[in-house]
């Protein structure tokens, strides 16, 4: 994934262009030994989430923090900024306008990062599958680790999804960030296909 000296960040004004980094993401290989296993264990038990409250999913995410569902007992805590969080939750249908924000937030998170997509809308468009503005499957634009089906999934289902994600991380399969870096051009091509006014940086560090 070399840059090849192509002009980048053309969507930005000349003044803004120098504010953003031009480097592309690189694959960070996981260590192949017991240390990585230990680190994965820590990652799996300290999931800091960035809730992206599009659609109706956000309303099902809130009860998780309350005494009734108490997600913090599994080490799942909400975090207000993409920089610090490790799990990105897309809370329902995404339109073209929100996809821009999703991509930017996702790229600002640090490797390793995981994505959970809630609801049928993120899987195949759900009840908005033929809408002019609702994207049908989110995994064409960013790598998704876990889909939680439902319209909307109940908090119990979301907790079960977190359990699955935990198993995935423990098995060392939560490498979405590397997948994104590996297939960067494919993902970018898909994003550019629907985001027609590309007025954001090509890659957000």
């Amino acid at each position: 994934m070399e840059n090849n000296n192509k002009p980048v960040n053309l969507g930005l004004s000349a003044a803004d262009r120098e504010l953003f980094c031009e480097a592309l993401p690189v694959v960070r290989k996981p260590l192949q030994n017991f240390i990585e296993k230990f680190l994965n264990w820590a990652r799996a038990n300290s999931l800091w989430i960035l809730g992206f409250g599009t659609g109706c999913g956000a309303i099902e995410l809130r009860p998780l923090m309350t005494s009734r569902y108490d997600m913090y007992r599994y080490g799942i805590a909400p975090r207000p900024t993409p920089r610090q969080s490790s799990v990105f939750i897309i809370g329902g249908y995404a339109s073209v306008k929100t996809l821009k924000r999703i991509v930017r937030s996702y790229e600002q998170m640090q490797n390793p990062k995981f994505v959970i997509a809630l609801g049928s809308c993120t899987i195949n468009g759900g009840m908005y599958w033929d809408s002019y503005n609702t994207i049908n499957r989110i995994d064409a634009y960013i790598p998704v680790d876990i889909y939680i089906a439902g319209c909307m999934p109940r908090p119990e289902a979301i907790i079960a999804g977190f359990g699955k994600l935990k198993e995935l991380i423990l098995a060392g399969k939560g490498e979405g960030a590397n997948k994104y870096a590996d297939n960067f051009e494919w993902y970018k091509a898909n994003q550019r296909k629907i985001i027609k006014d590309w007025n954001m940086p090509d890659y957000n560090w």
Binding site: L39, S46, Q84, Q110, N111, P112, A177
Partner: peptide, 14 residues
């Protein structure tokens, strides 16, 4: 839990 959080944060790759 605070230990896990610190280990996880220090283990971020980027």
């Amino acid at each position: 839990q605070p230990f896990l959080d610190i280990i996880k944060n220090n283990a971020k790759r980027t």
